[in-house]
């Protein structure tokens, strides 16, 4: 085992273990944080740090194979869809008229009312 191998081994260890830690922290956040709007951020810790670190760690373990390609495809996909899904959850909550509680001394921005084209969407969406 030469120096490069040792380095890669240590690196993937570090990535996977820290990824695991972030996954746990994210779900802890999902459990501990006080309300829904705060919990969104807890979930996004899992979705960003946990996913990135674990996928990289696994890539290094797999070496230069088709498995790495699949892992990278999964990684890219999660990288794009994770935030989109989170945004969709938050957006649905906002649109149904639910506002996050503000910290002291801050007033939240009020969203503009639905635009006409959104209204069309709403009609189409309901027809499904």
């Amino acid at each position: 085992m030469n120096a490069v191998d040792v380095f890669l081994e240590v690196l993937s260890w570090a990535l996977i273990v820290s990824g695991s830690v972030f996954v746990i922290i994210g779900s802890l956040g999902l459990w501990r944080l006080p309300d829904f709007w705060a919990r969104l951020h807890g979930a996004s810790v899992t979705e960003s740090a946990g996913v990135i670190l674990l996928i990289w760690g696994m890539c290094i373990q797999a070496g230069f194979t088709l498995i790495t390609v699949k892992l990278i495809i999964i990684g890219i996909f999660l990288f794009i869809t994770g935030p989109t899904a989170t945004h969709a959850v938050a957006n649905a909550a906002l649109v149904t008229g639910w506002r996050p509680s503000e910290a002291e001394g801050l007033t939240g921005a009020e969203p503009e009312p639905l635009r006409p084209e959104n209204e069309d969407d709403a009609l189409d969406g309901g027809e499904e």
Partner: peptide, 20 residues
Amino acid sequence: NSITLTPGTITVETERDNFL
């Protein structure tokens, strides 16, 4: 998506020239 991907901030709504 970058805003949402960085934990701590989430894009909630898109408007004509602003994000909430």
